[in-house]
């Protein structure tokens, strides 16, 4: 009779969870807005930081991989731009992952006092990284001007790959943030993932340098597909299709596992946090 009827039962997976998620979209906007606002309010360096960090890493990687290790770049674009085109999605992924992973613990007071679909918290925390990404992207444009490099029109497809990076970070982040509620030492894994990931993802070098027989395995790292996609858009590097599809598959898999695990443990967050 009443459309607002709510039934509370143990283990009940609510059919209207996704509808609820939609109803609470305002909360999602406002939490994202809060995170962004707080982040850039507290630190003047906040903005500068999102430029300095990728810039310094790019300079170091360019020197180490191009000058010291003498690696080449297949498309003939400036090496620094190639590194930066990989650095952008990687930094974005790393930031989003750490924000999402710590989000539930960071908002413990909300979780234990108010009801809303919990997925909003990790989702909104990722948005801050999107802003950082936008700022760093301006730097990429500046570099293109500096090197007088004109990108291909394919750059318009970039949002697709941004979405991929977002999905990858969200899936893994959901899983880790849920685990984090129960096992607080899980957060120490994040810096480790980020550190290792930087080296097993083709950030400082082109993935075409990976031997052919390993490339398929290499693409099990979902960020390989994303970085390749970025370089395909920006530098017109050739795309290794099978690897790309494996990466997409891995992202979907992670996302699925993350969502399922999160939904399963969500109800007990308030008791454990």
């Amino acid at each position: 009779m009443n459309t607002n009827r709510i039934i509370i039962e143990p283990g009940r997976t609510e059919q209207n969870y996704w509808r609820d998620l939609w109803l609470f979209r305002e909360l999602f906007y406002i939490l994202s807005w809060r995170d962004i606002k707080v982040r850039y309010k507290q630190t003047v360096i906040g903005t500068a930081w999102s430029i300095i960090r990728p810039l310094l890493t790019t300079i170091i990687f360019t020197i180490v991989f191009s000058r010291v290790a003498k690696l080449g770049e297949p498309s003939g674009a400036p090496y620094a731009i190639m590194v930066f085109a990989g650095m952008l999605p990687w930094q974005f992924f790393a930031n989003a992952l750490s924000e999402a992973s710590n989000s539930l613990i960071g908002n413990a007071n909300l979780v234990s006092k108010v009801y809303f679909p919990r997925m909003i918290i990790p989702a909104s925390s990722i948005i801050t990284s999107l802003v950082d990404f936008a700022i760093s992207f301006l730097l990429l444009l500046a570099m293109m001007v500096f090197y007088q490099y004109v990108p291909d029109v394919k750059i318009l497809l970039l949002p697709v790959f941004i979405l991929m990076a977002l999905a990858a970070a969200f899936g893994v982040g959901l899983y880790i943030t849920a685990l984090n509620v129960k096992y607080r030492d899980f957060r120490y894994i994040i810096p480790f993932i980020v550190q290792i990931g930087l080296y097993i993802t083709p950030v400082g070098f082109s993935s075409s340098l990976v031997p052919e027989k390993w490339r398929l395995w290499y693409s099990l790292n979902p960020m390989v597909g994303v970085v390749d996609g970025f370089r395909w858009c920006i530098l017109d590097e050739p795309m290794y299709r099978p690897g790309f599809f494996i990466s997409v598959f891995m992202i979907v898999l992670f996302l699925w596992v993350g969502v399922v695990y999160f939904r399963k443990t969500e109800k007990s967050f308030a008791d454990n946090i």
Partner: peptide
């Protein structure tokens, strides 16, 4: 009742926005 935590057994039916 506010759906912050779930019960171990039993059932609650609420007709309206809480």
């Amino acid at each position: 009742l506010s759906r912050i935590t779930e019960p171990t057994t039993g059932r609650v039916t609420i007709d309206g926005r809480v």
